[in-house]
């Protein structure tokens, strides 16, 4: 079993598909590429393809990560040369790197995600209003948001999950950059942060009005953020 870590972009028409559909699209592309996928045992064999962190429908992923396990070793270059042309429009393979089989599991390694958010807002959204909204968010002890779960909503405090946040109003456009806690514990979604900024700052708008980019996935090693991939 040979393990490869791939970075890819997700945009274009595929920006609008969800995590499970992405997994299916990726799996089919690997088969079209003729990659010798490693399969699980049993009646319903599945290839071992593991994504670092689900990307919400509509969010553009600039440096997403997936690991593919193969039965036979191939060079990084050969893998890239075969898979890249087999990917559908909207998925672009950026890099391929063989990783040690024993390396920590990709999903468990993800601690932080960075996002860029852009959008046009109402006329009352001035640079001063954004600045004071940002100060209010960063100064808040806790920020409660209602997170949709299976049946209904659950109230969560997202403040501790906001590692950094910057927001600027330039020529009527609101641009934000944020580093958020990510992964299996304490994950915060960028639209929740936008919602908090709009609400606390008294700014009009809907989180859905914005375009979201996930710019990177990171692990934390002795208090330092290290880019995965």
């Amino acid at each position: 079993m040979y393990r490869y870590r791939l970075t890819f972009r997700k945009d274009g028409p595929l920006r609008w598909i969800g995590h499970l559909d992405l997994a299916r699209a990726f799996e089919r592309a690997c088969r079209r590429a003729g990659l010798p996928l490693f399969y699980s045992e049993g009646f319903n064999p599945r290839p071992r393809i593991v994504f670092a962190l689900p990307l919400r429908v509509g969010v553009i992923g600039l440096r997403e990560l997936v690991e593919v396990y193969l039965r036979v070793p191939v060079t990084n270059e050969a893998l890239k040369a075969r898979l890249a042309p087999a990917l559908p429009e909207g998925l672009a393979l950026e890099s391929v790197r063989r990783v040690q089989r024993e390396a920590p599991a990709l999903m468990a390694a993800v601690d932080r995600a960075t996002y860029r958010v852009e959008g046009t807002t109402g006329p009352e959204v001035t640079p001063e209003a954004v600045r004071s909204g940002l100060q209010a968010v960063l100064g808040a002890g806790e920020i409660k948001i209602a997170r949709k779960i299976k049946d209904g909503a659950k109230e969560c405090d997202i403040r501790s999950g906001i590692i950094s946040l910057d927001a600027r109003c330039i020529n009527g456009r609101l641009n934000m950059a944020m580093t958020l806690r990510a992964g299996q514990q304490g994950n915060v979604r960028p639209e929740e942060v936008v919602e908090a900024l709009l609400r606390i700052g008294g700014l009009s708008g809907d989180p859905l009005d914005f375009t979201y980019y996930r710019t990177g996935l990171f692990t934390v090693l002795s208090d330092r953020m290290v880019r995965l991939g």
Binding site: L14, W16, I17, V57, G58, G90, L208
Partner: peptide, 17 residues
């Protein structure tokens, strides 16, 4: 329109083939 609807992949086109 896509961000406002359920399953926007229904309307994007651009599929393989």
């Amino acid at each position: 329109l896509l961000r406002w609807v359920e399953k926007p992949g229904r309307y994007t086109g651009g599929e393989l083939n």
